[in-house]
Design a protein around this nucleic acid. Sequence first.
DNA 1: CCCGATAGTTACTTTTTTGGTACTACGATA
DNA 2: TATCGTAGTACCAAAAAAGTAACTATCGGG
Lengths: 112, 112
Amino acid sequence: MDCIDNSCPVEATLSVIGGKWKVIILWRLVNGTKRFNELQHSMPQITRKMLTQQLRELENDGLIIRTVYPQVPPKVEYSLSDYGKSFNSVMESMAHWGFTHMERSRQDQQSM
Amino acid sequence: MDCIDNSCPVEATLSVIGGKWKVIILWRLVNGTKRFNELQHSMPQITRKMLTQQLRELENDGLIIRTVYPQVPPKVEYSLSDYGKSFNSVMESMAHWGFTHMERSRQDQQSM
DNA sequence: CCCGATAGTTACTTTTTTGGTACTACGATA
DNA sequence: TATCGTAGTACCAAAAAAGTAACTATCGGG
């Protein structure tokens, strides 16, 4: 699992989920299918443009599935593909570390 | 481990190790202390400036330890702190996923 | 015939990140 | 006394990422 020449598995991961939003979006999809607006409202900081763009890239990389319902007004649902679900363990790991990091930060503050 | 209000453990993690270089640098330090130039040579794409900057931020966040030896020419060593080592499990997880991702990409190419 | 709703797109601007080159300090060596 | 080597800094430019605001499509309802 080491970096051999210029093929490094950690960098490979970063190349797929790098950037400011991808992981956050995937994390929102862990507990099920979401519509575009649901996603947007669960991430007030992201703009429609960014959300669309990141969702397209995740779709192209096969991590999520985009389902369009031929209705008006439009209905588009996003969900994790099996491949996307395989990323859950990484996110769980990140969530676990982040949780202890938050605890730690809180304690740092108190001792000041 | 969910997102509660605006405190999300995944986002907390990203705020510390987000960006293009942090994880890559930490991954280089997993198997021991490295000097500045060693780090740079193991990441030919990074510039001195970026490397310095990222190392400082990692140091400020308590993930790495910077040791300056009072010599000429200078010798500065970087290593993971205990806290930084606690991030190893996340990186292992990323490395594992990245490894299968590389396999997958290779197979996608062959079937084209 | 205008309005609302959803899921976008487009053009433009700002911000952030990254890169390039030159410069520094200091002692050792030739 | 000029040069080398390490680990940087300083300043400016370029590129990439992200944000802003306005615009689109379509159907149903008032």
